[in-house]
Simulated scan of single mutants.
Amino acid sequence: MLRPPHPRRTARVTGAVLAAVATLAACGSAATPAPMPTAPPATSSSGPGVPGSPAAAAASRPANAPVVVLDPGHDGGNAAHPAEINRPVPAGRGETKPCNTTGTSTAAGYPEHAFTWDVAVRVRDALIARGVRAVTTRPDDAGVGPCVNDRAAIGNRAGAAAVVSIHADGSDAAGARGFHVAYAAPPLNDAQGAPSAALARALRDALRGAGFTPANYIGADGLAPRADLAGLNLSTRPAALVECGNMRDAREGAVLSSPVGRQRYADAITMAVLAYLGR
């Protein structure tokens, strides 16, 4: 979740993530750590020789395939490393913010970091199967960070055609529910202008088309132009941040924490990215 006055979050970039990028060349109250998510595996256990597997798709995709960077918010180890995630880092527009935060959770204790990782992996594997070179800004849900400025740098160095940051909100306002998509405004470079706004609209349209309701407490018609999100401010690539829903709302929290609900979100985000890329 990334919503004022709560700062964005992150910590160090791991060597595994940086290596992945090299080969290719935004929350509420602290969440109590919960059991690890039942995310799909990072790669198919069936191996690269099995048609239709993520590994097979990755091996067969063309070298000029577009790169998409998926940024699952927070990380599973953040809560245990407060000094590391609270250190200030550049946030753009002359500001600094804490490296990262722990994120929010549902009333039942399902954490945002688990949700974002699960959805990001589902989207990543679906995009790879469609010939897109998709990577995540963190390798798993057991680490710390990376910091918000480092997450932006991963997309920049990858020359990403699109960067999608995945979150869930944590508003305690009565009746607050629904998704919203943030993009940098006013823009600081050309990529933050029309391209990022178009990516945000594609995400909004796909989520709405999948039956999700735009937020009734922030933004307008599912869109929220923002000047305070470091990952968007520091991006030189088309970037948007989607808050998939409000984890603190009981009804919406149940959808966000269910495997069926997470697949619905992943399908919508995948279709949005493909539509934005014209694929």
Rank of each mutant, 00 (worst) to 15 (best):
V144W: 08
T32S: 06
D75P: 01
T137R: 01
A206D: 01
A206F: 03
L2R: 11
E252N: 12
F179H: 14
R61F: 03
T23Y: 11
F179T: 10
V144R: 07
A39D: 13
L229M: 14
Y265M: 01
P62E: 02
R12T: 08
R204V: 01
A59M: 04
A57S: 14
R124D: 09
S53M: 05
G170Q: 06
R264T: 00
P40G: 14
R12S: 10
H6K: 04
A129T: 15
D221P: 04
L18S: 14
A120I: 05
P7R: 12
R201F: 00
A58C: 03
T23K: 13
Y265A: 00
I166P: 06
T38M: 03
E112K: 09
P238K: 07
D172L: 12
R61M: 15
G193C: 03
P88S: 14
F115P: 02
A160F: 02
L188W: 02
L188Q: 13
S105V: 03
G143I: 02
A107C: 04
A65G: 09
G77C: 04
P146Y: 08
T116C: 14
A120G: 11
R122H: 10
V68G: 03
D140R: 07
G222M: 07
G103V: 04
A114R: 06
G175Q: 06
P72H: 08
D190G: 15
L256G: 11
R251Q: 13
T102A: 12
R279E: 02
A230P: 03
A239K: 05
A63G: 14
G94I: 05
A42P: 03
S29I: 09
S45L: 15
P90W: 01
A239W: 02
A30E: 14
W117A: 09
A80T: 08
R133L: 09
R93H: 12
A58G: 05
T23C: 14
A185H: 15
D75R: 06
A220Q: 11
I128A: 08
G28S: 12
L241H: 12
L24I: 11
Y217S: 10
G15F: 12
G145M: 05
L229E: 07
R9S: 15
A158V: 00
L256H: 10
G92M: 08
V132T: 11
A174S: 15
N156R: 07
G92S: 10
A34Y: 09
L223Q: 08
G159R: 04
G49C: 07
I85L: 11
A31M: 03
H180D: 00
H113W: 12
G245S: 09
A227L: 01
A114H: 15
A160Y: 00
T213N: 01
A25W: 03
P51E: 12
A142H: 10
L256F: 08
A20C: 10
S258P: 08
S53F: 05
S258R: 07
R177T: 08
V119C: 09
T213G: 02
D169M: 03
P4S: 11
R264W: 00
P146G: 11
G28T: 10
I128D: 03
R138Q: 13
T270K: 05
I154W: 00
P111E: 15
R201V: 14
N216T: 07
R87V: 06
D249L: 09
T14I: 00
P62Y: 02
L199D: 01
A152F: 01
G145Y: 06
P225Q: 10
Y110N: 08
D150C: 13
A83E: 11
A202S: 15
A194E: 15
Y183S: 11
D249E: 13
P41D: 13
M247T: 06
I269A: 02
N189D: 14
